[in-house]
């Protein structure tokens, strides 16, 4: 086995460290969410915290696990850009639900 093959067959330790760091972060954020679920009273603040932490997790899963942060800008925006339609849908339905007869 020559030198080139040898280097191919050992995991890139820098990459492995990054993966483990992201994994630990996802675990910690989930534990924090658990803590919040039992500590805080139900309300707007609690919901905002949950949604923020969810987006932190989503950012790391999509950016590092799915590797999107390291792709070309064109690909990043063609995936993230269309999500703007969801914002419109959410705003519209939240307005609708406030005027909907129960």
């Amino acid at each position: 086995m020559n030198q080139e093959n040898l280097s191919l067959n050992t995991p890139d330790s820098k990459k492995i460290r990054l993966i483990i760091r992201v994994a630990v972060l996802l675990g910690v954020v989930t534990l924090v969410e658990f803590a919040i679920a039992f500590i805080l009273e139900a309300g707007l603040l609690k919901n905002i915290l949950f949604i923020l932490l969810t987006f932190v997790k989503a950012f790391y899963i999509v950016g590092e696990f799915m590797h999107l942060s390291h792709e070309k800008k064109f690909l990043i925006w063609s995936v993230v850009g269309p999500m703007i339609f969801l914002v419109v849908l959410i705003v519209l339905l939240f307005y609708e639900s406030s005027v909907y007869p129960t």
């Binding site: 063609s78 969801l86 849908l89 959410i90 339905l93 939240f94 609708e96 639900s97 406030s98 129960t102």
Partner: peptide
Amino acid sequence: MWYFIVGDAFTFAAFLVAYGFVRDVAP
């Protein structure tokens, strides 16, 4: 695969937004 995921994300988002809507309307 990325574009399939974008499409699938819309499907799940529709489910979750509909859930939020009905929940907001319910007492």
